[in-house]
Computed example of a mutant assay.
Amino acid sequence: MSDTTTTRTIDRLLFGDNQFFGVNHMSEEKARAQQIRFQDLDAIMHVLDDAYNEGVTTFMCTTHDRIAEVCDRVSANPDRYPDMRFFPCMPYAHKYANAITDEGLLGAIRRFLPEEGLLDSIARGTSSLARKDIEGITTLLIDAEMKMFANVSTPVIWLQNVVVDLLSGLGFTEAFRIFADHVKTRYGAEPGFITMNLPRTLDELERAGVENPLVCSNINKLGFRMSGGVDSYLDALGKRPFRAVAMSVMASGAIPAREAIEWVCALPNLEAIVFGASSRGNIAATVRLVDEYWQDR
């Protein structure tokens, strides 16, 4: 089935959440310090407020349990966050493993399924298991992940690289179509795909019939965590029909910010940049650099 959805315009700067959950690809010490700092919701909200005040109003986040608290805070204060949008990235595998350990399988199912669709979800899940129907199971899991975002705006929903790259490696491209169709029909959102191997994922999305896809991958001049190398990514950016969202543009700090942003903003086919920061100064500096180098796109 082809994707004929009209292309959405997304903000050119998206704010990520790695810093809130102790993810740093260069420094374990810094990751631990950030994890401790952001144990308190107010600390997370303070940084999100800084980003929002700098005009970065889209939060591209995992479905970590703590994000549910952020959603609740935002939905409870609509006057403070009239333009706040969330781009959920799913699944968050540790969440399921921990829930099953703590609450058992049935407890975990009750915890994650959307209440309004519980009976429908159970019916889908039961029939899916009986028929080995992957589509039913997949949509069931998507709905479980989306439960926490019920009261906030989610115009784009992403499939995480851990799943995208696994499915790509297995050649199970039909799952990409299932994800894309369900995200569009149930949530009125645009599907996005995160990958560590951009050229291969574009091939698989093309086979699945997902046209002009929104794809997020590491894009930086050092080739940091870019499977296949910089040249293959540049070739894809110049020739392939897709919309690129660049992450790790500074290669976790290995490239100076100005150099990194000047380079990535000159690339063709760039839809947006996702970045993380933990201070208003760094957020403001990134905003200024993108304003300087992202000209007439």
Rank of each mutant, 00 (worst) to 15 (best):
G209Q: 11
D143W: 09
L237Y: 02
D203A: 13
I134W: 12
G229S: 04
M146F: 00
L129E: 08
T195P: 02
I157Q: 01
T138N: 12
W158C: 01
L205T: 07
L141T: 03
V152C: 04
C216I: 05
G229Q: 05
F179W: 14
G136F: 04
S153N: 09
D181P: 05
I134P: 05
G188F: 11
K221Q: 10
I142F: 06
T154C: 15
T195Y: 02
V164E: 01
L222C: 03
R207W: 00
L166R: 15
A144T: 03
F224P: 02
R131Y: 10
T154H: 14
R225M: 12
P241K: 13
T173E: 13
E174W: 02
M146R: 00
S128C: 07
A208M: 07
G223I: 03
K132D: 10
D143M: 10
L214S: 06
D203Y: 08
L202Q: 09
A180R: 09
V164C: 15
I134C: 07
G136T: 10
G223M: 08
A175G: 07
S227G: 04
G125F: 08
S127E: 06
F193W: 05
P241F: 02
L198R: 05
T195R: 02
D235H: 07
R207Q: 11
E204V: 06
E174F: 04
G238Q: 08
E206A: 14
K147T: 12
T154M: 11
I194P: 00
G136V: 06
R200T: 06
A175F: 12
T185N: 13
I157P: 00
D165P: 01
G171H: 11
K221Y: 01
V163D: 00
N151G: 11
S232Q: 12
T195D: 03
A180N: 08
L140T: 11
Y233S: 06
H182Y: 15
G228S: 01
E204H: 12
P191Q: 03
L140F: 14
L129D: 05
F176Y: 13
P191I: 01
T195S: 14
S217G: 13
P241R: 14
M196G: 15
N212F: 08
I157F: 03
G169M: 05
P199K: 13
G188R: 15
E206N: 15
T173I: 06
T185M: 12
A144G: 15
R131D: 06
F176D: 01
Y233I: 08
T185Q: 15
M146L: 09
L214M: 12
V163K: 00
Y187E: 04
I134T: 13
L205K: 14
T138D: 10
F193T: 09
Y233R: 10
G125T: 12
G125S: 10
G125D: 09
L166M: 14
M146I: 00
G229T: 03
V210Q: 08
P213V: 10
D235T: 04
T139S: 03
V210P: 15
R225F: 07
